[in-house]
Design a protein around this nucleic acid. Sequence first.
DNA 1: ACAGGTACTTTGTGATGCAAGGTACTAGGT
DNA 2: ACCTAGTACCTTGCATCACAAAGTACCTGT
Lengths: 120, 120
Amino acid sequence: MNIENAQVQMRKGILEFCILHIISRGEVYASDMLDELTSAKMMVVEGTLYPLLTRLKNSGWLDYKWVESSSGPPRKYYVLTDEGKIFLDAMQATWFELADSVKTVIRRTEELSKTDTSNS
Amino acid sequence: MNIENAQVQMRKGILEFCILHIISRGEVYASDMLDELTSAKMMVVEGTLYPLLTRLKNSGWLDYKWVESSSGPPRKYYVLTDEGKIFLDAMQATWFELADSVKTVIRRTEELSKTDTSNS
DNA sequence: ACAGGTACTTTGTGATGCAAGGTACTAGGT
DNA sequence: ACCTAGTACCTTGCATCACAAAGTACCTGT
């Protein structure tokens, strides 16, 4: 295992949360999401995004409609379903809890390194 | 997919980071880690922790020594290797970047919901 | 010997990130 | 009509990983 792989692991699941967030703002299609996530420094590629959107759709959290484009193939514009909105709220709560748990662990390490000099 | 599954996905990778953090404080064995992670509200079970420790060991980031116990079987006490310390630092940087990316996405959603009333 | 507690290990399953390759629509040039 | 380039969506195959469940092994007390 290497750093890159570990970073991939860390992003898992969180990506899903971020995508739901972006869709919650209004109708978007996949390339919009890729742009937004890239600008937020969340690396993501097509091979990850499309299957993920299909999963979220099949779970009933997203819906989409086809919209013709004047400069290429039609686009799938996604929206959150009512169920999806509830799910997003739950995901956001989970995220904050998780971030808080990590903060707790980091704080404990810092506290212990002040009083315990046995660690290099 | 359900909420529980999504929460599991979100924890992936981050668990690894937290375990490295705990081991960085000094010698600990698996049950110690389980206690600490549970008290930080990071749910984790044996079937997850032991294979993860083996992976980290095989990657060269951990080392361990057997220590006899007066009340049961011997314990594996883990320590971070020098490589493991470097890896932990990289993971911590990744964590902060990731948390920051998520914050960016959430902030954008909040900003847009103020000015754009088209979302229910 | 046996039961109970502690600690570490292994097997099998299902989920999923991602690279790579594929399909399909449009516009513009020849 | 044909080709190329750009855009957008989809699929296949692989490697990784969390977890449940079952297993192994050591110690103490009766």
